[in-house]
Amino acid sequence: MPRFRRCRQRGCHSMVQYPNHYCSKHFEHEAEYLAERKKWARKHSEQYKNKERHYNHKYNTVTRNRNDNRSEQYKFYRSKQWVGLRQATLDRDHYLCQYCKVIGKLTPNSKTVDHIVPIAYDQSLRDVKDNLVTICRKCHRQKTQWEQHYYGTGQNMTKRNVPEIKDIRRITILMYQN
């Protein structure tokens, strides 16, 4: 399926098919824009390569692998098993956010798969299909905040001894109460 984006001309709201940046009305600016991008990329390539390399190193070794438990979780998300579970969940839920669905809203093209009970709280549920659900970005942010408050998961937090909640409806209500 072809992808589209807006024309880069200020004030123009026409849609342009990738890889173009300007609509047919403003296409004369395309070559100039591409030349500017190449010029900028050449000028900044060395400088950004070093910064990106440093950022990725720090993120992968310090942030993601801050302890053995987190390191194991990261490895799981890179496994073939997770790829299969994720795709099966997306297909089952038809790429619709299940938390939005509870409140009567359809959010299509949700591509994130979430653990209902976070694996940081209960590692044994990481590969259980009934513990996986499709979620949109907005709900994922909201649910992550709720999980940190309820379960005590997250960086520099201590796990709480609370009962696991596996009902999406109940979680949605609790998420939006806070």
Rank of each mutant, 00 (worst) to 15 (best):
Y99C: 03
R53T: 14
C100T: 05
R78H: 14
L34C: 12
W82V: 06
E28S: 03
Y55G: 04
L106G: 00
F27N: 00
H54R: 15
R70F: 06
L125A: 06
H29F: 04
Y18R: 07
G84P: 06
Q81D: 05
K58C: 14
R42I: 11
W82Q: 00
L96F: 06
A35P: 10
L125E: 04
R53Y: 11
N50W: 10
R78N: 15
Y74V: 00
V83R: 15
A31Y: 05
D93A: 13
D122T: 08
T107M: 12
W82H: 01
L132D: 01
Q17F: 01
N67I: 08
R70C: 03
W40D: 12
R37L: 15
A31W: 03
C12R: 10
A88R: 14
T134D: 04
A41H: 10
R66G: 07
R86C: 06
S110Q: 03
Q87D: 14
V83K: 15
N56S: 07
R78I: 05
N65P: 04
Q81S: 10
K43M: 04
R64Y: 04
H29A: 08
K101N: 13
I119T: 01
N67R: 13
A88Y: 06
S71L: 12
N109E: 11
C97Y: 02
L132N: 01
S79A: 14
L34N: 10
T89I: 04
K80A: 08
N50P: 03
A31S: 12
N69F: 02
V128D: 09
W40T: 14
Y95V: 02
T134V: 09
A88L: 12
N69K: 03
K51Q: 10
L132V: 07
R86L: 12
D68V: 07
K111P: 00
I116F: 01
V83S: 12
G84Q: 09
F76I: 10
Y99L: 13
D130A: 11
A35D: 15
E46T: 14
Q81T: 10
R126L: 04
S124A: 12
K25N: 13
S124C: 07
H44Q: 14
Q81G: 07
K38F: 11
D93I: 12
S45H: 02
H13P: 01
R64G: 00
Y22F: 13
Y95K: 05
V16P: 02
R92E: 06
H54V: 14
H115D: 12
C100D: 11
A120S: 14
S24F: 06
R78K: 14
K129Q: 14
K43A: 09
K49A: 08
R66H: 15
S79W: 05
H94Y: 12
L125Y: 08
I103N: 05
R78Y: 08
K38A: 11
L106D: 10
H44D: 12
Y99N: 02
D130E: 15
V133F: 09
I119L: 13
Q73E: 15
R10T: 08
V133D: 06
R70Y: 00
H115S: 07
K43N: 03
R42V: 11
R86W: 05
S24Q: 02
